[in-house]
Amino acid sequence: MKNTLLSGLAGLLFGAGLLVAGMTRPDKVVAFLDVSGDWDPSLAFVMIGAIAVHFVAYRFVPKLGSPFLGGRFALPTRRDVDARLLLGAALFGIGWGIGGYCPGPALVSVVNGTSDALVFFGGLVAGMLAFNVTERAAAPAE
């Protein structure tokens, strides 16, 4: 229960941050990525602000030993760079550069109800479901 409440609070804060930062404005995102045009470097500062805070938080992980709400830290441990990682990132970047939404802002913007936001969100869900289908097809039978 506490975990659920905390996750809700984190989601709310995360969404507020995306909105304040300008990440829910696809024109601004594309103006950041389009370095050849009327370049708007603002969104680089989003990453700087986020990492400045979160980098410090990570320093407390070893000291704490376990999360405040109990259980264990469930953090990624892989360090290898493989083709799936790079291909996935490349495809994600292409979609981001065309549409101006990454997953967080796409979710936050759904409630605004514009046809652009809804169409992009529909594509996002379809892409994720398509991945689940191709993964299942590629996985050996159990």
Binding site: A10, G17, F45, V46, I51, A52, H54, A57
Partner: peptide, 20 residues
């Protein structure tokens, strides 16, 4: 952008230190 980024970092830190 910096302020929004800091909020995002705070949200991620709540998840990390609270729920791991």
């Amino acid at each position: 952008a910096l302020l929004g980024g800091a909020l995002i970092g705070l949200a991620a830190s709540v998840m990390l230190l609270g729920a791991g």
